[in-house]
């Protein structure tokens, strides 16, 4: 990814002045955007920012450390329900619920991560799938017991006299959280932890032989990823002022997996790109659906499913390195493919 030549340069956050300039420009654009966008566009931006957090979390886990997890929806649900339950039972404010969600996420990460010590690849994915259903069941149990057939309503977070409810205010809050997630990802990647994860991803037997404490780093990957995801789930609960277990289906998990595939496995900008793609996709479909016969127009969500399935298949077959891979191929900057094979990516 970088053209840096020395380790010192590698470790610094912004190597060259060109990158500093690019960063400043990007920052300027990001700060001005909410004042230029319509409310609808602003909501889309907010959704993308929110999704980026969990996408980055999943990318850390699967793209970096090579640990397959299908537990995203369960972790999002855990975070969201922490907010919902605490708010409903004890009217807890956000500065209690958010950390609580993160902590619960971390604990769940530990639980989700335990199978990774014995299982690999497919079997690990299956174990996280099982845990997903357990979490979803618990959420459903709570809703049933409290006869909340339509879910829990949550007040917007407020501090002092200020209530966080406007699109613009949410934009800056979510931008801050997304930036934080980005910072965590970038830093983890550059440091010892990131290198350990990369070693894990290649061959954990070899990593262990090199003296890397496999257990510690595997669990750390799960814990960090889960805490980030649960926090995103908590933010989601506040963002929509509402939480219901029905929103957290396997399809949601698949969407996040699609984000890192479509964006490009193992790539930080890829996770954000993928998040943007997947979040905006249903809206694009809806726009197209206006031109479809009325019969399809009534079940746009089915058109969405079908189209999403097709897109995911196309990416997996034709461009397994995602949009980032596509970008690189167009730039022709690197020969990534060997004849006859479509190998999965190396981390950038």
């Amino acid at each position: 990814m970088s053209e840096k030549s020395s380790l010192a340069q590698e470790l610094s956050l912004f190597g060259t002045s060109a990158r500093r300039l690019r960063f400043a420009l990007a920052l300027a654009v990001l700060l001005v955007l909410p004042f230029l966008a319509t409310p609808f566009q602003l909501d889309l931006l907010n959704q993308v920012l929110l999704a980026s957090i969990s996408a980055l979390a999943l990318m850390l886990l699967t793209g970096f450390a090579g640990l397959i997890s299908l537990g995203t929806a369960g972790l999002l649900a855990a975070g969201a329900f922490t907010v919902g339950v605490l708010f409903r039972e004890v009217a807890a404010p956000f500065w209690i619920t958010l950390p609580a969600a993160a902590v619960l996420g971390a604990c769940l990460g530990l639980i989700f991560g335990l199978p990774s010590l014995r299982l690999r690849g497919l079997y690990l994915a299956i174990s996280t799938l099982g845990l997903h259903f357990v979490v979803v069941y618990l959420g459903g149990e709570y809703e049933a017991r409290e006869t909340l057939s339509t879910g829990i309503m949550i007040d917007s977070p407020s501090i002092g006299g200020f209530t966080l409810s406007s699109g613009r205010a949410w934009y800056f809050v979510l931008l801050a959280f997304a930036a934080l997630a980005l910072l965590i990802s970038v830093n983890l990647r550059r440091t010892r932890t990131g290198r350990a994860w990369r070693a894990l991803r290649e061959r954990d037997i070899v990593a262990a032989a090199l003296g890397i404490n496999v257990t510690r780093f595997k669990l750390m990957a799960f814990v960090v990823s889960a805490a980030m995801t649960a926090t995103a789930g908590a933010l989601f609960a506040y963002f929509r002022n509402f939480v219901s277990i029905d929103a957290f289906s396997l399809y949601l998990t698949v969407q996040y997996v699609a984000m890192i595939i479509i964006g490009g496995m193992g790539s930080i900008p890829g996770a954000v790109l993928g998040a943007a793609f997947v979040v905006l996709f249903p809206y694009a479909i809806e726009a197209v659906a206006a031109y479809l016969p009325a019969r399809f127009g009534n079940v746009v969500f089915a058109v969405d499913y079908a189209a999403f399935g097709v897109v995911m298949i196309l990416f997996l077959l034709l461009e397994p390195e995602g949009l980032i891979g596509l970008w690189h191929r167009l730039k022709n900057s690197r020969i990534r493919r060997r004849p006859g094979t479509k190998s999965s990516t190396a981390p950038r």
Binding site: Y251, V254, V257, A258, A302, V303, D304, Y305, A306, A307, F308, G309, V310, M312, I313, L316, L317
Partner: peptide, 11 residues
């Protein structure tokens, strides 16, 4: 890919 196929078939 099979997961994606499942979603496609549902739609």
């Amino acid at each position: 890919i099979t997961i994606a196929l499942g979603i496609l078939l549902r739609g």
